[in-house]
């Protein structure tokens, strides 16, 4: 092991403290009986029970999860096709343009993506009558558009790292190209597709700005609901909600970590 200087070690310590102190403080506050953050009113779980009685929160959560699952699935299908096209189909007409267009939604500021999609939906409605109402379908389309870029990049880099002669070998042994995609390519890029799906799912659950643009009356996603509450200041039931999410994510990561280590060991 090479020596790390004191400077590097203190940067690491400061950096991780910076990343984690806010999260820890939210968890602590969530158990504060007082509704004022300044006062410690004693330990209590009342914000949690209040949260679970709040049907508004539960409705918004349900809508958000529905959108996230649908858009992540669509994004994984489209993104995988795009990744395959970029990594395996050689040169085709418009490839450079295609690859530029794939990665652009990732770097586009959310306000621009949101505004542009809303204007598209309004124009489409004028021309075709669809979408009659903005909500689940428009938010799902918007989320699919920007998260398919992430899936495409993840799948593409996995394919680039993968030995192309695996697919050639399958073809050499009599597998027709479409068959080979299902026999060889998809099973081998499955981890990348799962990672892409999870990322798309998180991005969708996380999005506030784009959803605010393209949603209509009556469709409030969880981030939109949270935002309308915290705009007015600290709100104790949001502390409880944040703590639940932190706990769920940490648990998921720990489980994934253990699973990965166990998988890595035998070989």
């Amino acid at each position: 092991m090479r020596r790390r200087s004191r400077f590097i070690l203190s940067a690491l310590a400061f950096g991780y403290a910076f990343l984690y102190i806010p999260l820890i403080s939210v968890v602590i506050y969530s158990f504060n009986d007082s509704s004022l953050s300044a006062v410690w009113g004693g330990f209590s779980t009342r914000w949690y029970s209040e949260l679970f009685r709040n049907t508004q929160v539960l409705d918004a959560l349900f809508l958000s999860v529905k959108i996230a699952v649908t858009s992540a699935t669509l994004a994984t299908i489209l993104g995988t096709m795009a990744g395959l096209a970029l990594a395996r189909f050689g040169r085709f007409k418009g490839r450079t343009f295609f690859s530029g267009m794939i990665s652009s939604p990732m770097v586009m500021p959310e306000v621009i993506t949101g505004l542009s999609l809303l204007l598209l939906f309004v124009t489409l409605q004028q021309l075709t009558g669809w979408p009659g109402q903005r909500g689940f379908s428009t938010i799902t389309i918007a989320h699919t558009t920007f998260s398919m870029a992430y899936v495409a990049i993840i799948v593409q880099s996995r394919l680039v790292a993968m030995d192309e002669s695996l697919e050639e070998a399958a073809m050499d042994l009599g597998g027709r190209p479409l068959r080979v995609v299902f026999d060889i390519t998809l099973p081998l890029i499955a981890p990348a597709m799962i990672a892409g799906w999870l990322l798309a799912f998180t991005l969708s659950l996380d999005d506030l700005v784009i959803a605010s643009f393209v949603s209509g009356p009556g469709s409030t996603t969880l981030p939109m609901l949270i935002f309308s509450k915290v705009k007015l200041g600290v709100s104790p039931d949001i502390n409880a909600l944040a703590s639940i999410i932190i706990a769920a994510v940490s648990l998921g990561v720990v489980v994934a970590w253990i699973a990965m280590r166990r998988n890595a060991k035998p070989s």
């Binding site: 030995d163 002669s165 695996l166 050639e168 070998a169 399958a170 060889i184 099973p187 081998l188």
Partner: peptide, 9 residues
């Protein structure tokens, strides 16, 4: 194949 291209799965 040079890499043998054994299907890992």
């Amino acid at each position: 194949f040079q890499s043998y291209a054994i299907f890992p799965h």
